[in-house]
Nucleic acid binder design. Structure first.
Length: 732
DNA sequence: AGCACGCCGACT
DNA sequence: GTCGGCGTGCTC
């Protein structure tokens, strides 16, 4: 009788459990990739068969209740990817599977589902007449759909509409019944936009990648903003479509890139599937199945889309590969960019990492000849390069965050009917809230952080744990009423800006004001219609948008990234400056970038501004080499949170001792710490960390799993929560 | 992660 | 007397 090895989604280092097969299971159901319902402790749960064994060391096996699938749900390559990821990231296999499958799958959902019809919904003539009607409250869903459809002649498919309206199908049916909308089969490519002519550099990329289409071919596509990376992607994808195979496109945040999605839809309406986290579960399940079975041809999605199975993979694209959003920052801490490269190797296909500001890791890989390097130097069209100007804030009047020079330039832009983009990296109204009488400051009771004052909702909020409290009327310490917000946030900046430019139409863009896809889309439409004069926002602004009428970009304070304990802070700062600058002067109008700083002499700024990102990257890489930091070594970080700091440090000291006793530990592996985390108290726990460094990746690869299983056994009864971060992005 | 078992404090 | 706090241990 065979024995099933089942991965159970529990946080144990070895989450594999053996079971006897269910009583009524057929031979073909006893295969890796089939879900089983099993008894587990006092409860029952759904697990995944990962192997069939002939013998188990465990004396008393239970019998599985039933198989949930008749044929394997998970194709073999995906199972292999799970196994590798579990090993590489030291994360329990059962949880890797549960975290990356559509959520319904491990809840035991059936996979025999009616797929949504593969059609694009369009307005009919009749529908167009009603598109601007006002609808009663109970028919607001009509209004939303009609409004969406009236702006897009080729129509939208159901999964795209689901981004704006949850579960659109009943509403679609109702509108179809009235004859206001009609389904258009996707196979009619009448409205497909024609490809744009490629310049020499773009052609070179397309030809070379095509010539290596049948093998693992990793490449870095280094192209400044507007150099036409997207056009290269589109033409490669069109070639993939012709070959009848599939492609996966990863983008950092889909909410923030509706324009790019729209462009893909216009050019590749055939079997395009859009995936992201706000999608309803059922839609995600459909997309997963459609990709696995080869019906979906091009899958565009965020980080988690890297785990979607592909029946006939031909190409993977990772756009804006430098973006930190590709690294998951909690629970299963994988890098979608690195997983994508692994997948391409496994499948034997090309993978394109695209960016205007490539990560130092990828640049290093091109230097090592591991990745091929393509450069797209020219801006498409006649757009001119922006000019940079550093403003020394030490020489400016202190009372305003906007230097006279910045103000003068804003004024000029407003006169000329050009748009301004201002960048500031602090949400909220004011980062501290203080009593002028006694000096009391509102702190988060759960973290080592001040509460941030939000004026519009009149709340104090912690940006680290989302703790919220009402604004106190008098000081809790001295009862005085002189409580005041101190410092600057985007909310307050917007207020000050409005006072300076009373007639300007100002829009704030940050996660407080624009949390959803729909709102972002609306705002972008307004911006393009020039209904906005000044855009003020956080990082969100820097990501991939095209603002053709923006001619002035202002960095309100560039100093945060220049002096940080995190070794990647300067890299991020440089990427941010270049990306934000890339938003300016895209058409005939030249752009200008004003950078306000208290450290105008900083070598990073000089190098970046005078010689460009490439030169900056060179010097940054030299610094990393000298300091033996990534990409010149491999890191892992053991983080721990405990009741007290002493307990946290003590746990790490024990862990360090355990490590040093292991057979695979040697002098090539260095353990640095333990040290208290940069923010010690977070969410009522005290944090410390231990850094693991090695020049050789495979040494760490062998050592880490051994270490973790030893830790699991020894430290099982410690009431601490710990996690290992392989290839950590920041050491916070 | 869940869940049970177990041993100490303030309740009807 | 017991209800329930969370520390500890286990899950094939």
């Amino acid at each position: 009788m065979p024995i099933l090895q089942v991965a159970i989604p529990v946080p144990l280092f070895n989450p594999l459990f053996d079971y006897h097969p269910p009583l009524h299971a057929s031979e073909t159901q006893l295969q890796a990739g089939i879900r089983v319902r099993v008894p587990f402790g006092t409860q029952e749960c759904v697990g995944m068969i990962v192997a069939i064994k002939t013998h188990s060391d465990y004396p008393e096996l239970k019998t599985a209740y039933e198989c949930l699938d008749t044929v394997p749900l998970i194709p073999k390559p995906l199972l292999e990817m799970y196994a590798w990821a579990s090993q590489y990231y030291c994360y329990p296999l059962g949880q890797v599977i549960a975290a990356t499958l559509p959520p319904k799958m491990m809840a035991g959902a059936s996979t025999h589902i009616e797929l949504p019809p593969d059609v694009l919904w369009c307005l009919t003539e009749e529908g167009r007449k009603h598109a601007n009607n006002t609808f009663p409250a109970h028919q607001q869903r009509f209004a939303i759909l009609l409004d969406l459809l009236k702006n897009i002649p080729i129509g939208y498919d159901e999964s795209t509409l689901a981004l704006a309206l949850s579960n659109p199908r009943p509403t679609l049916r109702a509108l179809q019944k009235r004859g206001w909308i009609a389904p258009l089969p996707k196979q009619s490519p009448s409205e497909i936009h024609p490809p744009l002519p490629l310049n020499h550099a773009q052609q070179h990329v397309v030809h070379t990648v095509c010539a290596h289409a049948q093998q693992f071919y990793p490449c870095l596509l280094d192209g400044v903003t507007g150099s036409g990376k997207t056009e290269v992607y589109l033409q490669l994808l069109q070639i993939v479509l012709h070959s009848g195979r599939q492609a996966l496109v990863l983008v950092p945040e889909i909410n923030l890139t509706p324009q790019m999605v729209a462009r893909f839809q216009q050019r590749l309406p055939l079997a395009l599937v859009v995936l992201h986290s706000q999608l309803p579960d059922t839609t995600r399940l459909h997309a997963w199945l459609a990709a696995r079975d080869g019906q979906a041809t091009v899958i565009i999605g965020t980080r988690s889309a890297v785990w979607i199975p592909l029946a006939k993979p031909a190409l993977i694209i990772v756009d804006e590969e430098h973006d930190p959003a590709y690294k998951q920052q909690d629970s299963f801490r994988y890098s979608a960019r690195d997983v994508a490269v692994w997948r391409a190797r496994q499948a034997g296909i090309p993978v394109i990492l695209g960016s205007a500001t490539p990560s130092l890791d990828s640049l290093y890989n091109t230097k090592q000849q591991r990745y091929h390097y393509f450069h797209l130097p020219e801006r498409a069209g006649n757009a001119l390069h922006p000019s940079y100007r550093v403003i020394d804030m030490r020489q400016q009047p202190r009372h305003s965050p906007f230097s006279p020079e910045l103000q003068k330039n804003i004024q000029y832009c407003l006169q000329e009917k050009q748009q301004v983009l201002l960048f500031y990296n602090r949400r909220g109204y004011a980062p501290t809230f203080m009593c002028y009488s006694c000096g009391w400051i509102a702190d988060c009771p759960r973290c080592d952080a001040h509460l941030v004052y939000h004026d519009n909702v009149r709340e104090l909020r912690c940006h680290h744990c989302n703790y919220v409290q009402n604004v106190p009327i008098h000081c809790p310490q001295c009862q005085s009423h002189s409580l005041h917000p101190i410092g600057q946030g985007t909310e307050k900046l917007a207020e000050q800006l409005q006072q300076l430019f009373p007639h300007a139409r100002i829009a704030r863009i940050d996660s407080d004001t624009t949390p959803s896809y729909q709102e972002m889309n609306d705002l972008l439409t307004k911006i393009h219609a020039q209904e906005i004069d000044i855009l003020l926002g956080t990082q969100m602004l820097a990501k991939g948008h095209h603002f053709p009428a923006v001619t002035l970009v202002g960095i309100i304070n560039a100093d945060a990234g220049l002096f940080s304990i995190d070794f990647r802070a300067t890299e991020r700062m440089a990427q941010l400056l270049i990306q934000v600058a890339g938003r300016a002067g895209r058409e005939a109008l030249p752009g200008m970038v004003l950078i306000q700083t208290y450290h105008p002499e900083h070598p990073l700024l000089h190098c970046l501004i005078q010689q460009g990102y490439g030169a900056f990257a060179e010097s940054a890489l030299t610094e990393r080499l000298n300091a033996q930091l990534p990409p010149y070594c491999r890191l892992a970080l053991l983080r721990v949170g405990a009741k007290t700091l002493e307990l946290a440090i003590e746990f790490l000291n024990q862990a360090k001792y355990t490590a040093e006793q292991l057979p695979d530990f040697n002098s090539q592996i260095r353990l640095l710490g333990p040290v208290p985390a940069p923010m010690i108290k977070r969410k009522n726990r005290y944090h410390a960390q231990l850094l693991i460094q090695s020049s050789q990746r495979n040494l760490l690869q062998r050592f880490l799993p051994q270490w973790l299983s030893a830790l699991q056994q020894k430290q099982r009864s410690v009431s601490t929560r710990w996690s290992l971060d392989v290839d950590p992005l920041d050491l916070m």
